[in-house]
Amino acid sequence: MAETTWRPASARGAGGATATTRAWRVWSSAAIVTAVVLAVLVVPPVVNLDEQAVHLADKLLPPSWEHPFGTDDVGRDLLVRCVYGLRVSLLVGIVAAVVATVVGTAVGALAAACGGWVDRIVMRLVDVFASVPHLLLGIFIVAMFRPGVWPVVISVGLTHWLSTARIVRAEVLSLRSRPYVDAAISGGASRWRVTVRHLLPGVLPQAGLAAVLMVPHAIWHESALSFLGLGLPTHQASLGTLVQGARSSLLAGDWWPTLFPGLFIIVPTLAIAGLAGAWRERINPRRRSELML
């Protein structure tokens, strides 16, 4: 008799992935994120290398035991530059995601809690912001400041709160019609108290998830801005400036200055997104994990 394997639909995840591959994905993501966090927190103080030290005699060395990622066009060790760059990019990504989430949560909660014309005006403004491409608006904002970390954080933060505002508004609107809000009103609670005590705590898991999902996106934006020469100053290692500095070498056939920073952009951000996707499936099992990057 022919054996047919049958799996319940509940064992299938994104795109028909089984529970096993999903678990594997979560654990590998967790391992990568842990490694990244250890690398950026522990390595720089312990190794204590000068990532900006120039050794012109060692320029453009291919990967070797001494320089696992090779060296760049002024002889700086790329492994060290990548770790420092990841540190800067991760910091920018996290702070920008927090800024975006705080702004988005505040705007979304305000719109939903006030309702009426406040809601309509605020959400139309959100639509206007959303109709301009993120990157264009981001470029416009960084162009107003001198190059540095904070303009990039502000630029990425201020262009990415829109989706969070929409998510939070929808969530607050659904919570607002619960009987426990009626009970609170009847118990004398002010609008402010209802929002802070009952509505905001209810949307925090969603907002937190949005923040984590935002981190990879913010890192990509930082890289894009720096790659365009508008973000961080070129001597400061970030994943974007590293890829930008490597462009000319690539044309000369030196692949390592592009490959390794590129991998440092892609692998950690995918790992963070993988973890966030798993978290989302836990708190909201209906939505399958598409990478919301």
Binding site: R178, P179, Y180, A183, G187, G188, S190, R197
Partner: peptide
């Protein structure tokens, strides 16, 4: 919220579904 607080709190309300009416 537009009702004066004294007027709102003059009513004690109990709803049908305790699960939905408790935070």
């Amino acid at each position: 919220h537009r009702a004066p607080r004294a007027q709102r709190t003059a009513f004690g309300v109990v709803f049908q579904q305790p699960r939905l009416s408790a935070d």
